[in-house]
């Protein structure tokens, strides 16, 4: 079970969090033309890297904040955790 450092609450066990996928995906802006391809990339296509991955987790049984976690998908090492508005 992972041990995730919520930037708001501190170190907590994985079972307090829920996974939210790739944190680098940017939603296309509202009211802007988006090509079919760009939209499909946004909705469906995700990378599945071995190694460093910046991902979203929500501290669902804690402060309910969405946070960013930089994690190694192979070793599960967590390098860094960030608040939603912080960049790596």
């Amino acid at each position: 079970m992972l041990y995730i450092k919520c930037p708001h609450c501190g170190l907590r066990s994985q079972n307090e969090f829920s996974y939210g996928g790739d944190a680098t995906v940017k939603r296309p802006e509202l009211n802007k033309e988006v090509s079919d391809r760009d939209w499909d990339n946004f909705v469906y296509l995700r990378k599945s890297p071995i190694g460093k991955h910046l991902e979203l987790w929500q501290h669902i049984s804690g402060c309910r904040q969405w946070i960013k976690v930089e994690r190694d998908t192979l070793t599960h090492e967590i390098f860094k955790t960030l608040k939603a508005n912080e960049e790596v």
């Binding site: 939210g20 939603r27 979203l56 309910r64 904040q65 508005n85």
Partner: peptide, 13 residues
């Protein structure tokens, strides 16, 4: 609730 929080915290802060 999670859905709303996602958009408020990450997409349209």
């Amino acid at each position: 609730l999670s859905h709303l929080e996602y958009y408020l915290q990450l997409v349209w802060p």
